Amino acid sequence: MSFFQTEEQKEYINKLELAIASFSEREQELDESRSFPYQNIRELKDFGYTALTLPKEYGGRGGTLYDFLLGQELIASKSGSTALSIGWHLGGIMEINERKNWNSEVKEELMKNVAKGALVNRAATEPKTGSPTRGGRPETTAILEGSSYIITGRKTFTSLSPMLDYFIVSAWVPKDESIGWFLIHRDSAGVSIEETWDVISMQGTGSHDLVMDSVKVDTKYYVENQTKRSAKGAPWLLHIPACYIGIAAAARDYSVSFAKTYTPNSLPGPIAELPNVQRLIGEMDLELLQARHFLYSVAEKWEQQPKEHEKLTVDLAAVKTSITNSAIKIVDMAMRIAGAQSLQRKSPLQRFYRDVRAGLHNPPMDDAVISLLAKTALSEE
């Protein structure tokens, strides 16, 4: 089923698909060597995808949330780690421009560089605080000295770190007794990347540690104060479920192809003719349809009903939890169709299986979403 809203969207996604045709061919080698997909990111830059959500006034495409999700799902079906990585960059650009709480001079400086190909991501997670969504205070500090802040600390899970040009770093600001966010360039003295990323899922995101050793930052790059941030929803975080449903769709496609072509000598035809295999295929497609409808309907409502944004914040959270769990179910069913062959290292299914599990640990977490839904229901009059 097509989820395109316009012919322009369809044309853009079709062109993107041609531009990333080689992504899936590289995945096996990248996974085995545990390498970062440098070439994938360069090809996305060349296509102009890294400026998809950048407003036209800065030289970007001015893509909508819906455009963004379509692109993310497609890329994830070819390379999950590439999609998740670039999703943080594009989502961050969308967030900055929608919140409109940055100094205009600094914002324009960053956006013009993004138009030239610069990449940016937030760095918030720390070893002792865990997920920033849990409310822990960062141990990274920003001490005011004259007209500059001196920032010292370590951030984990810094996705896209091998190619990032800018980091938006959270730090405790003693002067304000609150959390602040600072824009830091990769080439700043005292900034380094420590290659610590050693996981079985999403290895290609290059989510290494960002280390800051007395990094000097001009006061104008103190871009946000946590206490002054609005409590608006975060629709750009839908890039997370879009990524995982893209991986699940790839697993679905692979298993259906396998079922059509695999004929053991105990059967007169391919396993696709078996009722139990057909049942699994049908259940996969039902799960996939439900997930896609949920994702794109909420994105469409967010765009078309701005007065309902406050109510839709619950939906945004629910989409992530529902879809990431659906993705896990779909990949599991795909592996049941392929049987033990799905566990072979040469099979992409074992990679899909490992990668979709990572979705459980991206924000918002399942327990927080379920609690939010319950509290919302109990607050109804």
Score class of each variant (00 low, 15 high):
Y353V: 00
G339W: 12
M335A: 03
N325R: 15
R354Y: 06
K329S: 14
I330F: 10
K320F: 05
L349P: 01
F352I: 02
S322K: 14
S342K: 10
A334P: 02
L349V: 01
A334Q: 02
V331H: 00
I323P: 11
G359S: 02
A327H: 04
I323A: 13
A334W: 01
K346L: 07
S347I: 14
A334Y: 02
I330L: 12
Q344F: 10
Q344S: 08
A327G: 14
R357N: 01
F352Y: 14
S326I: 14
S322R: 15
A340I: 15
A338S: 06
Q344V: 06
M335K: 04
G339P: 10
M335Y: 01
D355R: 05
N325Y: 15
V331Q: 00
P348I: 10
P348Y: 10
G339F: 13
A358T: 02
S322E: 13
S322Q: 10
A318H: 12
Q344H: 11
L349T: 04
R354W: 09
D332V: 04
Y353T: 00
M333C: 01
A358G: 02
A338R: 00
I328P: 00
S342W: 08
S342R: 11
F352L: 06
Q350C: 09
A340Q: 13
Y353S: 07
A358F: 06
N325G: 13
I323H: 11
I337P: 01
S342D: 10
T324W: 08
A318G: 08
S326H: 15
V319E: 06
